[in-house]
Nucleic acid binder design. Structure first.
Length: 553
RNA sequence: GCGCCCAUGGCUCAGCUGGAUAGAGCGUCGGACUACGAAUCCGAAGGUCGAAGGUUCGAAUCCUUCUGGGCGUACCA
């Protein structure tokens, strides 16, 4: 509907220009929006006010001319008013609304999709926690956010790949191996003092047990080779656990990319040489520095330490070059907010690689406070005190967990209350939306029992759907595709929960006021069609969120 | 110290990239089931949008300063 009104306005402005009623100036993008106030019409535009400054004329006078020149050939407008400082308010004829539902019917499951992505290849990298311990609640939020961003982009016509970068090289991993080794020695009855900087979590001890059970004291003597084996063993095992945890959340990756792969054939050092050749790297003693300040970073960064080992940053440069060389035109990284200090150096790296700064987009996801009944649950990864994803999904369920993560803008902090998330009451917004869907299914079942199957658009009389609640529903349903589009452009998943919450709310109001199945068969058919369309939109939206749309609950 | 993020009814948060009288949910108070599912609906109270300036027809939204909170500021990842 918006597009139709925008076309009308464009047409009018064009003919105003022809007739010399408007000066040839920059014509702004025309915006049409929902007025808050019902008396301001169904839609409103502020073009006249925007044009006012460049035309050097009063907005209301411009508006008058635009309104006079609107050619409503399809007869969709009931009336047009000029109001306030120069708003143009549109009132749509009540019988044209239901026409909007036709496309829901023809598109079905695909209603809401678009092709704004034009097949552009985009990679979304998220979670990417190093396999030194189980995922915690903060990772879960990042996982779900990244997953849904990917889904939204997919629905918008991008060709999307979900990727997890495994930091399985470097001294954190070494530390992991050592941690297991010491616990292993303890099991053999050796009296060792467990180092402070090692991982304290119980899972380390469990791994040590596992190894002791299957290998006995095999690794007791040769410390070096033992640690290297244990590192790999532990990383594998932990990574598998991570994958399983992610699966319980409904997050599936297209690819797990190992950092180790970057070091094959001296990959990392070759890239550093390239960059050195381009003059982005200088040497100071044994250390190599990357001149990230050339690109606006606040200080230069080390890429090779004086002991000759490359830093994590060095590998990350190589990784990002690898991404672009695989043909991704857009690269999106979803990071925990604690990594924000990393952004400017990564942008510098991307530019040094000959890419534009915008070729790397970073979505920051703020940290999560885990609560139980409003009381913070203490968390410390190092000390091994945390609630894992599996415990969370096990306790509150996948749907509630995902929905709770998605309700907030990723940029704001999130309180995740375990008790609240699992209460099956009105305090929990997931059920509100799911209930609407279940209710719709239930009505359709009832109608089917009475021999009235859900009709298609061509079988109904759309002009019967004129009640205010019906019109509100249709309006909202009509907005769904543009909402998805906006959410894709802004990389903001939270718009979807807000939208379906609204939709469910309008539906519930409608339901309480009007009977769908009645003895008026024409009206019954029209309303069945309306709620079928509503159900389709809820289902499509929930599918994007990775949340189920139950038919009963 | 410096950098990034946040600040909106009692609580948790939206506010569509500058629009008309700032919106939801929870909580509080008052109503609605012999009607398709009451996990629902209807109504009410509750706000100088952290503070002060500035930009313009118009600011919760943009710019500056300040206050308060989170995070970061490694040759860790």
């Amino acid at each position: 509907m918006k597009e139709r009104l925008i076309k009308l306005l464009e047409g009018s402005i064009d003919s105003c220009l022809e007739k010399g009623l408007l000066k040839e100036t920059d014509i702004p993008f025309i915006e049409v929006e929902f007025p808050r106030e019902g008396s301001h019409g169904d839609y409103a535009s502020n073009v006249a006010m925007i044009l006012a400054s460049s035309q050097r004329e009063a907005p209301r006078r411009i508006a008058e001319r635009i309104v006079e020149n609107i050619n409503d050939s399809d007869q969709i407008l009931d009336k047009i008013e000029i109001a306030g400082p120069g708003f143009i308010n549109f009132f749509i004829k009540s019988n044209v609304w239901a026409v909007l539902l036709k496309k829901v019917d023809t598109l079905g499951d695909r209603y809401g999709e678009s092709d704004i992505g034009k097949g552009i290849r985009v990679q979304v990298e998220f979670v990417s926690a190093n396999p030194t311990g189980p995922l915690h609640i903060g990772h879960a939020r990042g996982a779900v956010t990244g997953d849904v961003i990917a889904s939204i982009l997919q629905a918008s016509g991008f060709s999307v790949s979900r990727e997890y970068y495994i930091n399985d090289a470097g001294n954190q991993m070494n530390l992991l191996g050592k941690s297991v080794y010491y616990r292993y020695l303890e099991l053999m009855g050796e009296d060792i003092s467990f180092p402070d900087n090692c991982y304290q979590g119980r899972y380390i001890t469990e791994l040590a047990h596992e190894i002791h059970d299957s290998f006995g004291d095999k690794f007791r003597s040769d410390k070096e080779s033992a640690i290297s084996f244990l590192t790999e063993y532990a990383a594998d095992s932990i990574l598998n656990g991570i994958k399983e945890d992610l699966e319980t959340l409904g997050v599936i990756f297209d690819r797990y990319f190992s950092e180790k792969e970057l070091y094959k054939n001296d990959g990392v050092t070759r890239i550093l040489q390239d960059l050195q050749g381009k003059g982005f790297i200088y040497k100071e003693g044994n250390t190599l520095w990357f001149k990230t300040t050339d690109f606006g970073d606040e200080k230069d960064r080390v890429v090779v330490r004086d002991n000759g080992e490359p830093t994590y940053f060095a590998a990350d440069i190589a990784y990002h070059r690898n991404k672009y060389s695989r043909g991704f035109d857009r690269v999106i990284n979803v990071w925990g907010a604690d990594h924000h200090g990393y952004i400017s150096r990564m942008h510098a790296a991307v530019q040094a690689l000959g890419r534009k700064r915008e070729d790397l987009e970073i979505v920051l996801v703020q940290l999560v406070n885990l609560l139980r009944n409003g009381i913070p649950v203490p968390m410390s990864t190092r000390a091994g005190e945390f609630v894992t994803i599996r415990e969370v999904t096990g306790e509150v369920g996948k749907d509630a967990a995902r929905y709770n993560f998605l309700m907030r803008r990723s940029n704001s902090h999130l309180d995740f209350d375990l008790e609240l998330a699992k209460t099956q009451s009105s305090e929990n917004p997931v059920y509100y939306v799911q209930y609407a869907h279940a209710r719709i299914s239930s009505i359709m079942r009832l109608a089917a029992e009475q021999g009235c199957r859900a009709p298609c658009y061509d079988e109904i009389r759309p002009d019967l759907l004129t009640a205010p609640e019906e019109r509100e529903l249709i309006k909202l349903i009509d907005t769904f595709p543009e909402m998805i589009e906006g959410s894709a452009k802004a990389l903001e998943p939270h718009r979807i929960p807000y939208y379906i919450n609204d939709l469910a709310s309008v539906f519930h109001s409608f339901y309480n006021k009007h009977k769908v199945v009645s003895d008026n068969s024409e009206l019954t058919k029209a309303r069945l069609f309306l709620i079928k369309s509503t159900g389709t939109v809820i289902r499509n939206a929930l599918r994007l969120l990775g949340v189920s749309a139950p038919e009963r609950m």
